[in-house]
Computed example of a mutant assay.
Amino acid sequence: MAGAVGIYAGAAVAEIAGCFAFWAWLRLGKSMLWIGPGVASLMLFAWLLTRVDAAFAGRAFAAYGGVYIAASLVWMWAVEGTRPDRWDLIGGTACLLGAAVILLGPRSA
């Protein structure tokens, strides 16, 4: 479980950074040179998700979704300077709880 948390956290940072590179180029008027690091970051994200110990890709991706949502709120605060409000925090918590259920729920073979 601890390994999955670290992998998911790294994947979230890589995905958000990669997507933000495109956002910066297309929405903030930054240089096209942002695309190269963005693509590399998205490739790292995809590779990291293959490191999660899960029998099915869909389950690994579904659990990651909750982590991604919470990490996006942290990114909004840390990088974009906008503090999440209580609804962001409630929603992010609900998503993390859902991710935990998917990742840790008992499975029958």
Score class of each variant (00 low, 15 high):
W77H: 14
V74R: 08
V5Q: 03
D53M: 06
L96A: 12
I35E: 10
V101E: 09
G58T: 03
G38H: 13
L26E: 11
A17G: 05
A17S: 14
G38D: 07
V79F: 11
A94L: 05
A12R: 15
G38S: 06
G10E: 08
L103H: 13
W23Y: 15
A11P: 04
G36E: 10
G6L: 07
K30A: 03
A21T: 05
D88R: 03
C95V: 04
G18P: 12
A4K: 12
R51K: 15
R27G: 02
P84A: 02
A99Q: 11
L73S: 07
A17C: 05
T93W: 10
A46H: 05
S72E: 03
P106A: 00
M1A: 01
A2F: 12
V101P: 00
M43E: 07
L44F: 15
I102A: 00
M32D: 08
I102Q: 08
E15S: 04
G66Y: 06
G81F: 15
Y68H: 01
T82C: 04
W34N: 11
P37W: 15
A71E: 00
R107L: 01
P84S: 08
A109H: 07
F20E: 04
I35S: 07
P106I: 01
A21D: 00
A11L: 04
W77V: 07
W87E: 00
I7K: 10
D85E: 14
R83V: 05
A60P: 01
K30T: 03
A94H: 03
A63V: 03
A60K: 09
